[in-house]
Design a protein around this nucleic acid. Structure first.
Length: 426
RNA sequence: GGAGAGGUGGCCGAGUGGUCGAAGGCGCACGCCUGGAAAGUGUGUAUCCGCCAAAAGCGGAUCAAGGGUUCGAAUCCCUUUCUCUCCGCCA
């Protein structure tokens, strides 16, 4: 959430910058300026009353000790009046604070200056394209057919026991999953990230802090009896490790990685987008998260993009890096790079990673700060990215490496799979 | 799930209605001491909000969270929540 000071000092600038995200903030900002001003005025009045009340209480106490109940009684009347007035002011202040928070929460994060204008994925900017798209046989097939042919994924079985979008991995398919997870984690640890295994359910405070609530309520699975949300990404628990924390500046950057299953309701998705492994309700992902110094967060973002680029190279997949336009960016992000691999049989780009700098948007919500050398507490920047999401990687690996007699496993992955090829015999 | 005990500053821990943002200790920071270190010693050491252009300064809030009693609450009452112990259940 945007800091109120930013709006107070640069309201017009906020409105201007949010236009890049195709968001008209003018009425919210204008209302916020009024509410903020009222709020501060009310705070001042209330504080003055409370100060007087404290003095009175002290005086009354002294009078009682001196046995002067008569004088004390008179002061009590004044005290009762003060109490009534401050109660009223407190109610006003609470209402103003609530309104301010409700307004602030509606504002998306300010986009970085490098974010291109635009409204749809077509307006995204391709910043790098690398790798050779394989030329497949005429009889090459999409991954869902390969999955059936080699008995790697059983979609129907998942539908039977749970529902559509919950595949069952099997045999070499299951082993490939396990191999990818271990590979991604090892790579992240080698790059200096600390490995975590987080809870898969989080409370409301956590879901709010990273920005899933209230914006994406309805996209998360919810367990009402315990008021817990199934995580849509490990970003939520891992970033929330640092909620209400004041780090020492010397601890930055904090680098964390976690493998987790991810759960997404994906309400409203349909068509070829959801075919096979393209879009699932449950999938596996290794996430990288960094908490960075504000002055270095964009270098950190580049570093994270490089890390993921390295993974894709090792997997020998053709990929491109896309800078999202304002209209395609998420609510909380200031700058996002999407990493897409080319899945040759479907002949389409599949998003396998999304790497974002949230600047202070999340840290302001979760009060994640660091103490600098001069003793000041400052909001840290948070960043995260997939490294990587499994299903579409699997889709691309299967499709791109297929041949008549099996599916090749990239060199880097073989120590993890313990097999070079996926074959009918397994 | 049942019964009981408890949640105080970075940590330990005192505090059962008044001048307590909170004794004392540990830790940490800086200084003194020392050839250097330890020991010793001195000072300091929470967060947020507001007033102010800002610093200084001043005011307010915060002793799990929320509400209540009272002139006055860390202290009393209620609700919620979490932790611990015992029992039950259980991968």
């Amino acid at each position: 959430m945007i800091e109120i000071q930013v709006i107070r000092n640069n309201g017009a600038d906020v409105i201007e910058r949010l236009r890049t995200k195709n968001f008209d903030a003018s009425s919210i900002v204008s209302r916020l300026l009024d509410v903020d001003s009222d709020r501060r005025q009310t705070t001042k009045q209330l504080d003055d009353l409370l100060a007087e009340g404290k003095l009175l209480a002290k005086k009354i106490g002294e009078l009682y000790q001196q046995g002067n109940a008569g004088e004390a009684g008179i002061l009590k009347e004044r005290s009762a009046l003060l109490k009534a007035q401050s109660k009223e002011l407190q109610d006003t202040l609470d209402a103003l604070t609530t309104e301010q928070d409700e307004l602030l929460v509606q504002l998306p994060n300010l986009p970085h200056e490098s974010v291109p204008a635009g409204t749809t994925p077509d307006d995204n900017e391709v910043v790098l394209r690398e790798g050779k798209v394989p030329v497949l046989d005429d009889n090459a097939v999409p991954h869902w057919d390969l999955a059936r042919l080699y008995d790697l994924v059983d979609f129907e079985l998942g539908t039977k026991i749970t529902g559509a979008g919950f595949p069952v991995y099997k045999g070499q398919g299951a082993k490939l999953q396990r191999a990818l997870i271990a590979f991604f984690l090892d790579e992240a640890v080698a790059a200096g990230y600390t490995e975590f295994q987080p809870p898969l359910l989080v409370n409301e405070a956590s879901a709010f802090a990273t920005g899933q609530l209230p914006d994406k309520d309805g996209q998360m699975y919810f367990v009402p009896i315990d008021k817990l949300y199934l995580i849509p990404t490990a970003e939520v628990p891992v970033t929330n490790f640092y909620r209400d924390i004041i780090l020492d500046e010397s601890e930055l950057p904090v680098k964390s990685t976690a493998y987790s299953s991810c759960f997404r309701r994906e309400a409203g998705s349909y068509g070829k987008d959801v075919r096979g492994l393209n879009r699932l309700h449950q999938f596996d992902k290794v996430e990288i998260v960094q908490i960075a110094h504000p002055e270095k967060s964009y270098l950190v973002l580049e570093e994270m993009v490089s890390h993921v680029t390295g993974l894709l190279r090792k997997l020998e997949l053709p990929f491109r890096i896309v800078r999202l336009c304002g209209g395609d960016m998420s609510f909380a992000s200031a700058l996002t790079y999407d990493m897409e691999v080319y899945s040759a049989a479907q002949q389409r780009w599949l998003e396998v990673s999304s790497i974002s700098n949230f600047e202070t948007f999340q840290s302001n919500r979760m009060k994640l700060r660091f103490r600098s050398a001069d003793g000041k507490n400052t909001l840290a920047h948070t960043l995260n990215g997939s490294a990587l999401a499994l299903p579409r990687i699997v889709a691309a690996l299967l499709e791109n490496n297929q041949s008549g007699d099996g599916i090749g496993i990239p060199e880097a992955l073989r120590p993890y799979t313990h097999f070079d090829r996926i074959t009918i015999a397994g």
